[in-house]
Write a protein that binds this DNA or RNA. Structure first.
Lengths: 199, 199
DNA sequence: ACCTGAACACCGTTCAAGT
DNA sequence: ACCTGAACACCGTTCAAGT
């Protein structure tokens, strides 16, 4: 754990954690270019090169932002009321809608997380694998309940993820106008696919 | 036309065209960050701020790179032997495969072209609309030939494009391992979708 | 109309030094 | 172990000046 509690009961964030906080805020406001180590340091109350004591370089700091984002998604996924009470196809649909909502709300984090990493962090790889297997098992449950067509679950999962990912990315680029008849927002695109994947 | 021919028969590129050439090459080699105006100028044989006489700023130069890329795709699309002799579903599939091949071959151009543009160039918008309508009419022809399921052509086209786009983007991020059983490369993902969209 | 060279502000990164 | 301040090389952009 990176957050400790002082004897006065105040949550005290480590410098490392405050640096990641600052980087995330700057990223949300202006993309990776706006994450200058000078501003990061200033926001965290340290000098402009204190970050180098915690991260190898700027990319390593951004990798930590992405890793924390994925870790939080994992926690949220574990907390969400799952397969037991709701129909499996609804669970799957809700999972993809959550993905779209997160991406639209935090476009810079979305772009960062799915960008290329020369720093191959084990943390990032593990989080990605975890998300992938959660999607695959949701697909398997929906197939078992006969609310989703048959086929290799990994292939079906890859198809669903690609569609959701692409719909969001095109929407963020402004290449899909959200209004106008016949136009589909990312939620609609995901729904269209899931409807057509029915058995 | 930006290329004129000298009286000796040599194709002479305008400075503007040479600047776009240089920017494209640097982009392919190292992404947008590698496109420094100093290197662009050097490669084009001019000073490091000659580009400002042709483009408002760096983003405007990159917009010109994207616009030229889209214009070339349009030419290629117009040249390709179309709907007449081949089955409509094959034409549609070939169109999406061409999209995937282009993106995998020129990842930096792909990312650039579909990124956000604060410079809203009319050229870019026109090229995007042209590509979109080409896809929609391919969908309509396949539907008319009953080799593609019914539904609003714009919605079906949006679904297909989102899937191809997302499959490529995930592959470029290294989030889809190309080998291993059950794993699907972008071509497979597109094929899976088209197969499931059959009537 | 098109280009150059100097200059400015800014950024990532390194280094020697401090507690 | 963690941090600071000065310094270096590099970059986008501006400006005055040249033909």
């Amino acid at each position: 754990l990176t957050t400790s509690t002082s004897r006065y009961g105040l949550a005290v964030e480590s410098t490392r954690e405050r640096l990641i906080d600052a980087a995330t805020r700057l990223l949300d406001e202006g993309g990776p270019a706006a994450v200058t180590l000078r501003d990061v340091g200033r926001m965290a109350g340290v000098s402009h090169n204190a970050p180098y004591k915690h991260f190898a370089d700027k990319e390593d700091l951004l990798a930590a932002v992405a890793a924390r984002e994925l870790a939080r998604q994992r926690v949220r996924r574990r907390r969400s009321p799952d397969a037991e009470d709701r129909p499996a196809d609804e669970v799957l649909r809700a999972m993809m809608h959550r993905y779209v909502r997160w991406a639209l709300r935090h476009p810079a984090r979305f772009k960062l997380t799915f960008g290329s990493w020369s720093t191959d962090s084990a943390e990032l790889a593990a989080a990605a694998t975890d998300a992938r297997s959660a999607l695959i098992s949701a697909v398997e449950r929906a197939q078992a309940a006969h609310t989703l067509g048959a086929g290799d679950p990994e292939r079906v999962a890859a198809l669903i993820l690609a569609t959701a990912h692409g719909a969001v990315d095109l929407a963020l680029g402004g290449h899909v106008s959200r209004t106008g008849k016949g136009r589909a927002d990312p939620y609609d695109v995901v729904d269209d696919l899931l409807d057509r994947l029915r058995p």
